[in-house]
């Protein structure tokens, strides 16, 4: 007889909650990119207003994890899962925050002539969204290979971010009147770059959860 039915049920609930929070964060970033690309102000406002739901979800999962630690004193795989959950929710919450930041900027952003020249922001957005999507998939399926791929993909986003900076530098040198708008675009690119970093963090915790190794180091 399995003596730990209720603990297993609670771990299962934690897993489902993380999937739910993951898909909420994923949807927020997808939609914010959408709102920015299509200049959809209604959608941008919706994302900003919805951010608190992800904050609430983070608090709820955090409380659940602390309660499990308190009552079950988990070890081994259980402890790694709960640690992974506690760390992941911070990154998911930040992804959603950055998505709301992008949505807010997309409401006020002007400089359509700059947008034309920013060839590297769309592929950045595409890569970052894809990385978040795959990081959640890697978690759901405990897919270590996919987690590694997401971590490698970060280099692509970083390289694109450098190109965006170069493009904006060029614009600023040529057209000083556009500096305010250029900074807004830079902020958006920076948020996308940070979102990719959070996806990497999630994957590193997924790897830890399965292998006990975090960034090539045993941390417990």
């Amino acid at each position: 007889m399995n003596a730990r039915n209720s603990f297993d049920k609670e771990l299962e609930k934690l897993h489902m909650d993380l999937i739910k929070m993951g898909s909420m964060a994923e949807e927020a970033i997808e939609q914010s990119v959408h709102a920015f690309s299509l200049r959809d102000n209604a959608l941008a406002k919706e994302i900003m207003e919805g951010d608190h739901q992800i904050d609430d979800m983070e608090k709820q999962i955090e409380a659940g994890c602390l309660s499990l630690i308190l009552r079950q004193q988990p070890v081994a795989g259980d402890l790694r899962k709960i640690t992974c959950a506690l760390k992941m929710i911070t990154d998911l919450e930040r992804i959603a925050d950055n998505a709301a930041d992008i949505a807010e900027l997309s409401l006020m952003i002007r400089g359509e002539h700059i947008r034309e020249m920013m060839r590297h922001i769309p592929p950045m957005a595409k890569n970052s969204v894809e990385m978040v999507h795959h990081s959640i998939d890697a978690f759901v399926r405990s897919d270590l290979l996919l987690a590694e791929q997401v971590i490698s993909q970060d280099d692509t986003v970083d390289a694109l971010f450098c190109k965006v900076k170069d493009e904006l530098g060029e614009i600023l040198r040529r057209d000083r009147d556009s500096s305010d708008d250029a900074i807004d675009f830079l902020m958006i690119a920076k948020y996308l770059e940070r979102i990719a970093d959070h996806a990497v963090n999630i994957c590193e915790w997924v790897l830890f959860s399965e292998t006990g190794i975090h960034k090539n180091k045993r941390i417990m």
């Binding site: 399995n2 730990r4 081994a76 402890l79 006990g212 045993r218």
Partner: peptide
């Protein structure tokens, strides 16, 4: 001990220390 209780190598160890039997 840190290894046994964080990342046991044998499934039977994991099952025992996590209370599965």
């Amino acid at each position: 001990t840190s290894q046994i209780f964080s990342m046991p190598q044998d499934k039977r160890t994991e099952d025992y220390i996590t209370g599965r039997f």
